[in-house]
Design a protein around this nucleic acid. Structure first.
Lengths: 229, 229
DNA sequence: TTAATACTTGACCATATGGTCAGTTATGGC
DNA sequence: GCCATAACTGACCATATGGTCAAGTATTAA
């Protein structure tokens, strides 16, 4: 095999200069790819937004394709960092609430990354197909199994867990991906933290109540989320 | 003003040849724009998919930009055709159910159009900004007023109507926009009509139950969607 | 039949694209 | 101070882009 070139060996090493420039490039590229998609983005524009000459971007990233893949991988890593384990012993209401909250936070903290991901899927997921039908599918199936057990124990209605996961994904991601629509319709410049908090509460409430989630302590008794305010 | 040229006077007229070719071009363009975004789409590719030389596409459509705008307008027209009037006198459960169903049908019938719209919003809605903050905003506000009145009459929980509308939009559109993800994760080739029907029922149920929608006949009494299957 | 109009399309143009490369400058360990 | 290596970058290339145009062919109304 070829000797690993320092340039592309990845990971954390590399001088301070390299790290700084790569960060600038990745940030700029995330914006541009998110806005225009893979094909519509140009290396020239990324370079300008990063404040570097085009050659320099290619020097660090090798190619447009590699840069794009690296961004996707970074986004997947963020995702994976969020996927805490759950078991059927946990409180469904708490798990669903935490799930919605963390997805909402992801949309808040990484809107460009979220849009980049959306753009990739929208285009038929040419780079992410195996991830979707591999890793991510396994993750969904394992969560689905837990949901199903909750339903069997009478802790929630017997809804299809996969459709439920999609419901949570779509309704939370909406605020990053369709930000332009949300802002246009609500007539605001930005969404405040309070807005996001209220939306999170709304979504949590509808999902938990809508799926008939009950407290685990008293087996199959009290319903959750009935504060009449 | 200049005399209207037959070529671009729009509307229904034009020979059979024109209509046939324009349809082919529009269909092809919708696919290509949906997949690659405005910038990423090329007239050449659209022409190939339509089975015509590039010059011919430009002959009929004038320019890439005009073609794109025309597609957006066609999609907005479909949308508007769906926006039937509602009043506070209607049954909330029925209205919400019909709303979800028709949005779901739209995702089913016009997935490319849906993705085209999504791509436009994702890119910051450069062509649709005024539509969003104008027509569409008004539409949302008027529906929101009805939802609010329902809440005041005790026919549903006092949820924020705008977030509710976004919830319905996002969760239904998901099945068109993120089709690649849905298929990858569920491991299917396509979603069947039965799948769509079940998803529609699931979403309807969660929304109606989650928002505490009640029947209007008995003022603020029975809750809806409790079939324990 | 004829003339006007609609349609068709290959050649062409200026510009932008992703990517290469050679030559130069800066950096850091010794 | 030395030098290997990292960092930098303008010039360049083949190709693709959106769009124009002129010269054709098909269609149709009179």
């Amino acid at each position: 095999m070829a000797k690993a070139k320092t340039q592309h060996s990845g990971e954390q090493e590399g001088g301070a200069i390299r790290r700084r420039n790569e960060e600038a490039i990745l940030a700029a590229a995330e914006r541009v790819f998110a806005r225009h998609g893979y094909r519509g983005a140009s290396v020239q524009e990324i370079a300008e937004q990063a404040g570097l000459p085009k050659s320099n971007v290619l020097y660090y990233m090798g190619s447009k394709r590699k840069l794009y893949v690296r961004l996707l991988e970074r986004m997947m890593a963020r995702w994976n960092a969020m996927l805490d384990d759950i078991s059927a012993e946990d409180d469904p209401a708490e798990v669903l609430s935490a799930f919605i909250r963390s997805k909402m936070l992801m949309s808040r903290r990484h809107p460009e990354g979220s849009r980049l991901f959306a753009s990739e899927i929208l285009g038929g997921a040419p780079f992410l197909q195996e991830y979707l039908s591999g890793e991510l599918r396994d993750w969904v199936q394992s969560r689905a199994a837990v949901f199903r057990e909750w339903a069997e124990r009478g802790l929630m209605d017997p809804v299809d867990p996969v459709w439920l996961i999609f419901l949570i994904w779509s309704s939370t991601q909406h605020y990053a991906d369709f930000e332009a629509q949300v802002l246009g319709i609500t007539g605001r410049e930005t969404l405040s933290d309070e807005d996001l908090e209220r939306i999170t509460e709304f979504l949590t409430r509808v999902v938990i109540k809508g799926c008939g989630v009950r407290h685990p302590t008293k087996a199959g008794a009290t319903s959750v989320g009935h504060d009449p305010a």
